[in-house]
Amino acid sequence: MTLAPPAPATAAEEPPQSLRITYDDGLTDRTATVRVWRGDGTGGRLVDYAVPLQEGMVVLDAIHWIQANRAPDLACRWNCKAGKCGSCSAEVNGRPRLLCKTRVEDAGGPDGQVVVQPMQSFPIVRDLVTDVSWNYEVNATIPPFTPAAGDAAPFVIPEADLVRVEEYRRCIECFLCQDVCHVLREHRATDRFVGPRFLVRIASLELHPKDTRDRLPLLRAEAGIGYCNITKCCTEVCPEHIKITDNAIIPLKERVADREFDPIRALWRRLRPLPMAAWAAVAPQGPAEEDPAEKGAPPELPPG
């Protein structure tokens, strides 16, 4: 040290005890039985843990208590513990939930038990952790935000034009909607359907007032929007309260239907490539036959 410490301002140092704040841990005299699925890709079972209940305890607190006191190797993905990152997704008593926002006391079934299992739509890594990498692969296939080349910065956009987009952008990518969606969960249609999360993502781009890309062909083909039969399960589990079905999927379905299935538009599409001179010859023939592939419902899902 080249610096001489200046004299203390107060003669007597305060004892460190005065700095200590005692915290009320809100421990109750009750315990909860938390049944946690333990295992890996080859199989597993539910293991019971008796957890002392704290006031307002959430399921993630219970998992942490188990890790610190009973099973240090209990695998559980989590980050912020504040409902903002969407990492601690799992199923509590069969319902897709964020563990950090689910209170133990609210979660308990009639017998007071809390059953915690991993998401069922994704491959198991270990215990409560699933392999959600498929979602990131899907995201990479969606064409990014593309403003017009001449659209100068900074943008001028009225607030009203962004209200819908703001709702979609609230998504924290917890993938609970992907977990609950029966097209992914029961039919395992990951090769044909991108799931609610990425329909919301596409909606956030399609409805952005400055975006110029056309993603309707993608929606109809690779994204498989036709597979959604609007059961609204995704909306029910969304922790951000995004009205996924009503505000994202249905508007997109309407756009696809308007473009692809409207007979007058279908005719226009057929005529448009023709040179003006051909108009007279083609126009009197009446509405063109629709391509069978453009008609009707999307292909049936395989059973199971």
Binding site: D40, Q67, P72, D73, A75, C76, R126, V129
Partner: peptide, 11 residues
């Protein structure tokens, strides 16, 4: 720490 190296929060 008990268990193996795969997704082991103790480790």
């Amino acid at each position: 720490v008990p268990g193996g190296p795969a997704y082991n929060p103790g480790m």
